[in-house]
Amino acid sequence: MVSKRNLLADISLKGLEIAPSQVWGSVRIVPLLRHQVRNDLRLLRRRYDEDLTIISLDKEMNYCSYVPHGLVLSWTDNGSPVGTYGGQLFKTDGKQLNHSCVSVRLMHRMVKRESHNQLRFLPLHLAMEGFLSMFFSGPDIAWREYSKYALSYGLGSRVESSVLGRYIAGLEDALRVFEIHSQQVGVLVFVAEALASAFVVPTPEDYRLLHNSLLEDFYGELLYQYALLHDTTFPMNVSLDESKINNLQDLRVAVENMRADWASFQGFMAEGLLGRSLNSQKVYTAGSFILQRFITDLNPKTENHIGEAIIRDNGELEYLKTYRLSKMQTRRVYLLSQLAKHNWNLDATASKLGHTREEFVLRLENVGFGYLLNAEIRQAALKKAKGKR
């Protein structure tokens, strides 16, 4: 049984070392190193070639997206190294349909146990599906302000758009030319000094196999624009005080201090994710490991992230993959969270946010949720807004 203390309250890189970054154009990649590798948990990529994947979540809900690969998790219960690794490569996963213009893969569940010690899940899509389904059922009280559609179907079909990593200018070249450290198990990816993604896996061997999978991940449109608009990063130079270097021991200490300063600063650059309060949800328990998804504490004035993590029962981080929400995505889920917090009462929510009812209705219109309200409410808000011009 998983208690609340087993769920991530914040993300810490305890047990990982932040190494000096490498820069290519506007892309900065910060290696994450793990010095104590246990090998009782491994991850393997399973490729898919279809144009579209449809995942059945339950009898009435499906998730549709381009899914280039899944991750297969293998573990042992006694702490011994994972054996016969790679046998899952040829396992059938879902059903394939090929048409003249499109190929489709039909799958069951975001997370599926395939054997006693093997689990398949869809990276990032697991987090995005959780994000899309937040407050999905809509009003639980038949307030007269809501449309018949909202009262019958909740939010209906929710859609969010993103950009494949291959379209982030400079990312493919950066991954191709940058050095992979012998103990590297992950990266922090920055685009024009904005944190785009954090990625951590259990072992260095896993990371080498999954290094280029970052190109198949999806990223927010903002990061795509940043990569186009900026062709370089901010200059960040560190140097040694030669006057204090008299022997090899002095040099060794100076280099260690410099690396520590770099790690501290690069951790500071990622403070929008690291150390932030999280709302976490357990997805699956695999032996002594817990797969969960999370969202940061929805502060509309700063960056916000969704993601997935695997932690040991002692709290050590073994896997992490994150996605940075756009400001519009943050606004949408923030307004939904405030409505849910106030039992979907428009007046109470508007008052809490310091708005009139009409102002709050316009906010819902601007983020694409106007269809939840009946025509009378929407027209009254638009009329009042025009009268103020």
Rank of each mutant, 00 (worst) to 15 (best):
K341R: 15
D217S: 13
F218Y: 13
V27K: 06
V102H: 01
L97W: 10
F136N: 06
D93T: 11
G154K: 01
F121H: 01
N246F: 12
L155K: 11
H69L: 10
F178D: 13
S56K: 09
S264G: 12
Y149G: 08
Q329W: 02
S152I: 08
C64H: 14
A9P: 06
K352R: 13
G315L: 02
L274E: 05
A174F: 07
K321F: 05
C64A: 13
H35L: 04
L229Y: 15
V27F: 08
I55H: 03
K148R: 15
L240H: 05
L298E: 03
I180Q: 10
K14Y: 10
M328D: 05
S152A: 13
F268A: 12
P20G: 04
E359V: 03
V185P: 00
I310F: 02
L364P: 00
G186A: 06
V187A: 10
L119E: 02
A127G: 06
W24A: 15
W262H: 14
S161F: 10
V201D: 01
N98I: 15
K282V: 15
H125V: 06
N304I: 06
K327C: 05
P235Y: 07
Y319L: 03
V102W: 00
K148L: 11
A174P: 03
Q292Y: 02
S351F: 11
F121E: 00
T233D: 07
L346Q: 01
V104M: 06
E172K: 13
G186V: 07
A254S: 09
T92A: 15
S133Q: 14
R293K: 11
L228H: 11
S56N: 12
S21F: 06
L97N: 08
F121C: 04
S80D: 11
P300N: 04
A198F: 04
D250H: 11
L71P: 00
M269T: 15
G156H: 08
K148I: 07
K14I: 12
D77L: 13
G186F: 05
E256N: 14
F190L: 04
P31R: 03
S161N: 10
H35G: 00
N98G: 01
A270V: 09
V200P: 00
E242C: 10
E216S: 08
V102A: 05
V177Y: 13
A260Q: 10
R363L: 11
T76V: 02
R120S: 13
G15W: 02
G156N: 07
Y66C: 02
L274P: 00
V201N: 01
N6Y: 14
F190N: 04
E160P: 01
G154W: 05
A194I: 12
V104Q: 03
E242W: 13
M128H: 12
N78A: 08
A227Q: 04
M107I: 07
E17W: 14
R45A: 10
V104G: 00
V2Y: 06
